[in-house]
Structures are given as structure tokens and as C-alpha cells.
């Protein structure tokens, strides 16, 4: 900051294409279910050890703890996303009724 010129206002913002509404809703669903899945995975596998399942009883993808943890995480994520998407859908219906 060494010359008078710099104290004048500059052009503040560059406009940028915005995310559409649908992309934002997808983002909200993905992100909130991600947070829930993190909690769910931690608690679930803190209590249950995948290696405690008898090998003959385990499904074919039950190969290692890391694999079960990871797939478990995606399972929780998918379930969470389903709940979040339904919540958004139903909340949208409530809002539309409120506007009527």
C-alpha cells in the first residue's frame, strides 16, 4: 500500500456462472448424508468387528476389515442420501402448501 491510487475502490467482483438450483440440492443431499454416514460408520464398526463374522457365513465381498469398513461407509452414505432426498422432497411439498 504505497501509492494514493490503491486507495480508490476497485472492481470488486468478477461474475461467475452460478450453480443451478438442482446442483445445489444434490450438494445438500450428498453433504448432509456424508456427515451422517461418517458418524454411522464410526459407531457401527466401533461396536461390531467385521472379522468376527465366520468366513463361511460371510458374503463374497467380505474380504477384509478395510473393505467392509469402506463398503459400510458407502452403504450408510446411500441410506443417508435417500433420507435427505426424501426430506427435501417432503419439505418442498410443505413449502408449496404454505404458499398456496
Amino acid at each position: 500500500m504505497n501509492d494514493e491510487e490503491e486507495l480508490r475502490p476497485l472492481q470488486l467482483r468478477e461474475p461467475r456462472p452460478a450453480l443451478g438450483e438442482r446442483a445445489r440440492l444434490v450438494g445438500i443431499v450428498a453433504w448432509s448424508s456424508f456427515l451422517a454416514a461418517s458418524v454411522g460408520t464410526t459407531v457401527c464398526f466401533g461396536l461390531v468387528d467385521p472379522a468376527a463374522v465366520q468366513p463361511e457365513e460371510a458374503p463374497s465381498w467380505w474380504t477384509s476389515r478395510l473393505a467392509v469398513y469402506s463398503l459400510g461407509f458407502f452403504f450408510f452414505w446411500a441410506i443417508g442420501a435417500l433420507a435427505a432426498a426424501l426430506a427435501l422432497l417432503l419439505a418442498g411439498a410443505v413449502r408449496m402448501q404454505g404458499q398456496r
Partner: peptide, 17 residues
Amino acid sequence: TAATAESLYLPRQKVYP
């Protein structure tokens, strides 16, 4: 629909800190 969606949200402007 896209046009209404645009008008609901202010377009994001890139911040150059």
C-alpha cells in the same frame, strides 16, 4: 425452469481475496 432457478439465487461471484 433454469431461468427461474437463476433468479432465485444470486449468481456466485468469484472472490479474489
